[in-house]
Design a protein around this nucleic acid. Sequence first.
DNA 1: TTGTTTTATGATAGAATTATTATAGAAACA
DNA 2: TGTTTCTATAATAATTCTATCATAAAACAA
Lengths: 223, 223
Amino acid sequence: MTKILLVEDDKSIVTNLVEFLTEEGFSVKSASGQSGALELAEKEHFDMVLLDVSLADGNGFSVCSAIKSEYDIPVIFLTASGDEYSTVTGFELGADDYIPKPFRPRELIMRIRNILRLTGGNGSVTQLGDVSVDTVKGVATRDGKDLYLSALEYRLLLVFINNRGAVLSRSQLLEAIWDIAGEFVNDNTLTVYIKRLREKIEKDPQNPTIIKTVRGLGYRVDI
Amino acid sequence: MTKILLVEDDKSIVTNLVEFLTEEGFSVKSASGQSGALELAEKEHFDMVLLDVSLADGNGFSVCSAIKSEYDIPVIFLTASGDEYSTVTGFELGADDYIPKPFRPRELIMRIRNILRLTGGNGSVTQLGDVSVDTVKGVATRDGKDLYLSALEYRLLLVFINNRGAVLSRSQLLEAIWDIAGEFVNDNTLTVYIKRLREKIEKDPQNPTIIKTVRGLGYRVDI
DNA sequence: TTGTTTTATGATAGAATTATTATAGAAACA
DNA sequence: TGTTTCTATAATAATTCTATCATAAAACAA
């Protein structure tokens, strides 16, 4: 489960956000100020930090600096609307995104998911049906048994994981895997690799449930 | 239809982006420098500007200032990777987002949609009666069930979605879908595809409620 | 009404997309 | 080095889509 550290001193916002984010499947812990935040960050691992710029105790920027210098976690700033200075400073400090208040919950979720995707920052294990992929160990398994993916097959699977739910066109996939920069890669190569990957991760490769074909558009994992 | 003004002087990037964005249902026009960009912006309305920071003629910042002072259009900067200065300056000038190169097309689309949504534009899921279209997943569904649109049917539907409420003439549709540039496409082809699309998305294809025929003018989605 | 124009429908050959099988050469590794 | 696995491609099959034709129906104008 993706764990979020919320640093915010407005109690009502905290209450609302904790409830909302929990409903959305995140695990949330909150701190109201700088000291509490750093204490929590030291004790346990978080996958993302939501950071209010204006804290009673210190300000969000110092928390961001402290966290970024110590951990490799994406940080999203919650800033006062139109506060250009905060935005700018936030980015300078390495924030991954900023969200001006007031924001819609939906918007927040989108930003969070987006940043998690971009930074590959989700937990380290992803479950796709009965296949689990551990991006730290670098293996895909079923029932604990290694599926022995080749390097390319694994990379392909990662691309799908990082874009779960989205259709990925052939050209996108080719670009992501073969890093085309003028090089010409046979279009069919991808098709063959999709087949190989399916052969290994699908229970019934003829009727794939994990990697779906979206004819004319590409492929999608939405399990 | 969401119209994008692309200001970029690298021909290959322009070619790729125009193709990709068009496929995604946007209408794109491009300019290679400051003067061309401002000229275009004056002539027609755009919903968003994609702006390269480094132009041969002037730089992206001046284009941004000029556009922002005149029009209320979101601007996304395309910056060299890690170019903090550009990012900062871009935001100071009122840019709505920035995307460091090299970027993945998908990422770009997400950013574009996001900004359009924030600024009161698009969204990734559109509801047409009981049919919903998710442009990220690349599917149209009813009651959660895939309607299995073909690539062309899907593209056609996207054009309608991006022009909700407006009558689209046959020639407009033909142009949008078949990208006519001298090529001759049988006029009836469109009629046939309208029928096919209705067959799949309408409850009663004989009495369409989503895609209405406007005799003599074209078709319209105003649900 | 009658004729004309526009739109709708059904059928179909050829095209395009995706899936599958096989294989030569490259790369990894002992 | 030799062995093994991996990679890219080719050739081919299976499937689905596309564009078109022919014809019907509907809307309109005289």
